[in-house]
């Protein structure tokens, strides 16, 4: 495995690890009630956002199972932090990775998360040789559900009342995609017109 080369450039974003100076950009969205509604870790005030940033600054690579890589999504033009995506290496022998994502609602709906996730999936499958990437979301979180479908992921689980989440019965969806599915998916999209048979 070659060494990880960061930052990653996509069409409109720079994906890089978090820095101390991101505190204002992160505070702008991470503690918002609409963001907190469906996230696992609680970051509701300045000190909780600061400790979350501290943790995410340590998410710089996947060296061993249990590690997480978290990348800040920085918009190329305005140089503004619009959200973040992460890849967690949950199982080494079976090559499993979990992705999570979070976007500032002010920048939602423009495909930024999708763009960042595409780059993250390339990294997961091509660089880290992960076999299966999965993502979980709340059953009511229709933005995430739509995004997972756009990413070509398959709905593998729909748990009902299997746990308590923020004081309520939880309804949770699992989406997943295998390496061979992602590679075929991206190849089909990139195929130049002249190579098409019919």
């Amino acid at each position: 495995m070659s060494s990880l080369s960061l930052p990653i450039q996509t069409d409109r974003l720079v994906l890089r690890t978090f820095e101390r100076s991101d505190i204002d950009g992160l505070s702008a969205y991470h503690a918002l009630p609409s963001v907190q509604r469906y996230v696992f870790s609680r970051t509701r005030d300045a000190s909780e956002v600061a400790s979350a940033l501290g943790i995410m600054r340590g998410h710089v690579s996947l060296q061993r199972p249990g590690d997480t890589l978290t990348l800040a999504m920085v918009c190329k033009g305005e140089k503004v932090l619009v959200g973040h995506v992460s890849l967690h290496w949950s199982d080494a022998t079976a090559g499993q990775g979990e992705v999570r994502f979070c976007i500032n609602p002010a920048y939602a709906g423009q495909g930024f998360t999708r763009e960042a996730l595409s780059a993250l999936y390339d990294l997961a499958f091509d660089h880290f040789h992960i076999h299966r990437v999965f993502a979980r979301c709340d059953g009511r979180n229709h933005h995430s559900i739509k995004l997972m479908q756009q990413m070509g992921m398959r709905l593998e689980a729909h748990y009902r009342e299997h746990a308590l989440f923020q004081g309520e019965w939880d309804e949770e969806l699992h989406f997943a995609i295998l390496d061979r599915e992602w590679q075929r998916w991206t190849k089909v999209k990139d195929l130049p017109v002249r190579h098409r048979v019919a």
């Binding site: 079976a94 593998e156 009902r160 295998l178």
Partner: peptide, 23 residues
């Protein structure tokens, strides 16, 4: 509730698993 594909190894092969539930 769930149909997991190749989410783990089971007896040296990719595992495919169903989870059922009743409330």
């Amino acid at each position: 509730e769930a149909h997991f594909r190749e989410h783990a190894l089971f007896k040296s092969q990719w595992d495919e698993e169903f989870i059922y539930a009743i409330l």
